[in-house]
Nucleic acid binder design. Structure first.
Lengths: 111, 111
DNA sequence: ATCGTTCATCGCAAATATACGATAAAGAAA
DNA sequence: TTTCTTTATCGTATATTTGCGATGAACGAT
């Protein structure tokens, strides 16, 4: 019915889930990797490298932009994308938290 | 049409995406947090704490089990769940890799 | 002004994910 | 055995995601 219970969780949980969702498709992982490697923030080059149509790549880029992991500026007829250092940092600190609370009982698995 | 291009990406990218997908819902983050806090690997307690029906929680647990983050054993009429230290470790090393390749051009954002 | 290039968005189809009630399975308790 | 408790699974409804062709917007070049 509702398919919509996400508001009932904490802000932390929702934000971490949101960032994880942005990473939950191989194409988006690949895009992030490309952006991290290339200094110049290409765009059409991404389409050339990935096995996806231009429209699809554009959509993935949009999702990465929506969570803030990627910034983009229009540069003449072409678009320039690059990582957003701040949100990358947020992702780091959040995976750090994840790390902490996962590592707590890391040693004794009872099952 | 196809909705199915995921095989064309690398193993690394697919595995990271798969783990990220397991984390991409607040309920599953909450479940992991609970499992990390409680020493005893409860189960029905999770249902009590989350704002979700028992069937739904069971489904989320299954997904976490499928990617290996969680182990479960049947203990009489009830089920015992706990984190899987090995896959938690895998997640760590993978977020480490993510960290590395994201941090590379961390300083100069060109957009 | 016209054409070509680059990219975003719209509209649609197919696949997945989310949620839950109902029911089944399996042991504990009576 | 019958009953209760606990959990997994089935079936189903709805929502979201994925992917792409087609189209449009914006600019550069001619």
């Amino acid at each position: 019915m509702s398919t919509h219970k996400k508001e009932e969780f904490s802000d932390d949980e929702r934000r971490l889930a949101e960032l994880a969702k942005a990473l939950s498709h191989p194409a988006r992982i690949a895009i992030l990797r490309i952006l991290a490697q290339k200094k110049s923030c290409i765009c059409g080059e991404i389409v050339d490298v990935l096995p996806l149509a231009q429209a699809t790549v554009s959509q993935h880029l949009k999702e990465l932009k929506n969570v803030g992991l990627v910034k983009g500026t229009i540069d003449g007829p072409r678009s320039c994308y690059c990582l957003n250092p701040e949100v990358v940092k947020e992702l780091m600190s959040i995976t750090g938290i994840l790390h902490e609370f996962l590592v707590q009982n890391n040693s004794q698995s009872c099952c």
